[in-house]
């Protein structure tokens, strides 16, 4: 594990009887990075998060958070971590304030932070309301406030945008970005919302059937997956003339050409091909987003 790593796993695996939920997972999340784990239901995301938090014992491998091993006997590391696992929960008979106060005492955080986070997560109108009388969205806000209350250096969040309304989703996204950018907080999250992941994460790990298939940068992927597809009578010659006119990234696929790095240059592509005396059958701008890519990598809609 390098010094810049906040979370590192080595050969992390978990078996439930004959079911291998997670296989040999090697992850390294840098300090201050927002890393998202993306996968279908049952891909192993929650099991991975539970292993990171010491709630499930790995069958193989190990976890290090901020350079320390984490587990049921190594609980001191939780002082520097905040977490939200699966659905938001709280002590139902306690108010929002009491739930946060309870967490504050357990983490040994100075008083005053409870009011700060109630205010920050807009829970003021509900501060004295019992947790079992909160809406799902406000319960999610309470769980996020609890995760953030003790100023953790690492946040492990399972579906942080769950149950939030659109404004709440933007608010939490901005909050997590701010924590990461301005305070160097590392955020490790899992999400089903591909749109949310592509807007928020610096890096995305795609997991499928318990294996890490690929890690990618969503912003780079967006550029890579935006292209113009052309069908022409002579693909070889069309490729050559397009490259000569300055479009360097031209690939050929099944008799079609893909021209990358060509946003807004559709008219120019058509003109170059036609002026070279090549018949242009079709020209289609394509944006293959993270969702398409994710589905391709994990076996389509089946």
């Amino acid at each position: 594990m390098s010094l810049s790593s906040a979370i590192a796993t080595r050969s992390l695996g978990k078996c439930y009887g004959r079911v291998q939920a997670v296989h040999d997972l090697d992850l390294e999340v840098r300090r201050g990075e927002i890393y998202a784990l993306l996968g279908r239901n049952g891909a192993g995301k929650t099991t991975t998060i539970r292993m990171l938090l010491g709630l499930v014992r790995p069958s193989t491998g190990e976890v290090e958070i901020l350079g320390r091993r984490i587990g049921p006997l190594e609980t001191e590391g939780f002082r520097r971590m905040g977490s939200l696992v699966e659905t938001a929960t709280a002590y139902p008979n306690l108010t929002v304030r009491e739930n946060l106060e309870l967490h504050r005492r357990l983490t040994g955080t100075p008083s005053g932070v409870v009011v700060k986070w109630i205010d920050r997560l807009r829970l003021d109108p509900f501060a004295h309301r019992r947790a079992d009388q909160l809406s799902l969205g406000n319960l999610q806000r309470l769980a996020l406030a609890r995760a953030l209350l003790h100023d953790p250096e690492v946040l492990v969040l399972d579906e942080p945008a769950n149950a939030l309304d659109p404004a709440g989703i933007v608010e939490i996204r901005e909050l997590l970005r701010e924590l990461s950018a301005q305070h160097g907080v590392t955020v490790f999250l899992s999400s089903h919302s591909l749109g949310e992941v592509s807007r928020l994460a610096d890096r995305v790990g795609i997991v499928h059937e318990g294996r890490l298939l690929e890690e990618l940068d969503p912003s780079l992927r967006a550029d890579e997956q935006r292209y113009v597809e052309v069908r022409v009578s002579d693909p070889d010659r069309a490729s050559t003339v397009l490259q000569k006119s300055g479009m360097r990234q031209v690939t050929r696929q099944d008799g079609r050409l893909r021209v990358y790095d060509s946003a807004g240059r559709e008219a120019e592509i058509a003109r170059v091909i036609v002026q070279a005396g090549i018949d242009l059958t079709s020209l289609t701008p394509i944006e293959d987003d993270l969702e398409d890519y994710f589905l391709k990598r994990t076996g389509g809609l089946s």
Binding site: T75, E76, F78, S83, T89, A90, P92, H103, L106, T107
Partner: peptide, 15 residues
């Protein structure tokens, strides 16, 4: 029953 065990067990406190 209240699903708070997963909150209790990730505290910086020996279990």
């Amino acid at each position: 029953a209240d699903k708070t065990a997963r909150v209790m067990l990730v505290q910086p406190v020996p279990r």
